[in-house]
Design a protein around this nucleic acid. Structure first.
Lengths: 155, 155
DNA sequence: CCCAGATAGCTGTATCGTACAGGTAATTTT
DNA sequence: AAAATTACCTGTACGATACAGCTATCTGGG
């Protein structure tokens, strides 16, 4: 029994280590990839466009809540995206305070290009992996994210 | 055959999505956990101390190369850590240009506390997971990091 | 052995992503 | 209809990072 507890702690420690490492490597990769796909769209812009693509037009508050970001952060990101013609703001017909953010065709296209580039990058990184392992990785990441998200929202 | 290619792309797309999501959630979690464990040690400080713990005292350039960071960034991080008594600088006896960075006892202890808190957090987040799944997750993350790191260094 | 070039580290400056505090306008509650 | 809440925006600040440029030191070819 004490062995089980010990094994559990070791595994959790490994997970903590690997997630921390992934965050660092992911940042470095994103930064290093720059001047190509990344210059097209910075990180926040990308996640906002992805979310708009996945969940449809919505107002700033909804985006902020969904992305666990401050409203002011989203406001600024959205302003930059609008300046670049990647999203459009329209007044919310149902609520005079709100503005609905929609991805433009250009925005979706730009996002898709970045996404494709990143997908290619993963194809490169995981070139030696058998498909079954890639699927296991995708599954595990998905479950981890679900668990993390549930926890974030519970608080 | 065309089906295999299609399946592969789908999986890579999923991995791309989940890694992007994990980066975002990880950031949000780190931020949200704040005022407790995190206030003790900001992100960069943590990875530097972890690396010093794992790999021993070394100079700024070695740290920067290993962490894929600019030397100036590490210099500043190290200065902050020194101000807080968490690392110490000593002249490199073998190279008059260099300074060797060592974690202090206080630094290691602080790092261990943060690490324990994070490990606890993962225990909380993954409370419902069987040990076997946790191990699979840890393995997959480890392999992903190896692949990412290899790619980063190859470039 | 000496100087030219490389390297280690630091400092100045700039950028990005983010938060918090405070403001205004619109909406909802009582 | 007054009070409280909400949605968004703006001012300001901070943390993490990069790049350019500086000084001190090291090293290898003449």
């Amino acid at each position: 029994m004490s062995e089980d507890v010990h094994g559990t702690e070791v595994t959790l420690g490994r997970i903590e280590t690997e997630v921390a490492l992934l965050m660092r490597l992911g940042e470095a990769t994103r930064r290093g990839t720059g001047t190509m796909e990344h210059r097209l769209l910075d990180r926040a812009a990308y996640v906002i466009l992805r979310h708009l693509d996945a969940a449809g037009p919505q107002n700033v508050s909804a985006l902020a809540a969904r992305l666990s970001l401050d409203g002011s952060t989203v406001t600024r990101q959205v302003s930059a995206l609008q300046r670049d013609g990647l999203i459009s703001r329209t007044p919310d017909p149902a609520d005079g305070r709100g503005t609905v953010i929609s991805a433009t065709a250009a925005g979706l296209q730009r996002m898709a290009a970045v996404r494709a580039a990143r997908t290619r990058l993963y194809g490169d990184i995981l070139a030696a992996w058998p498909e079954a392992d890639r699927e296991t990785l995708a599954d595990m990441l998905h479950r981890l994210n679900e668990a993390l998200d549930a926890r974030t929202r519970r608080r």
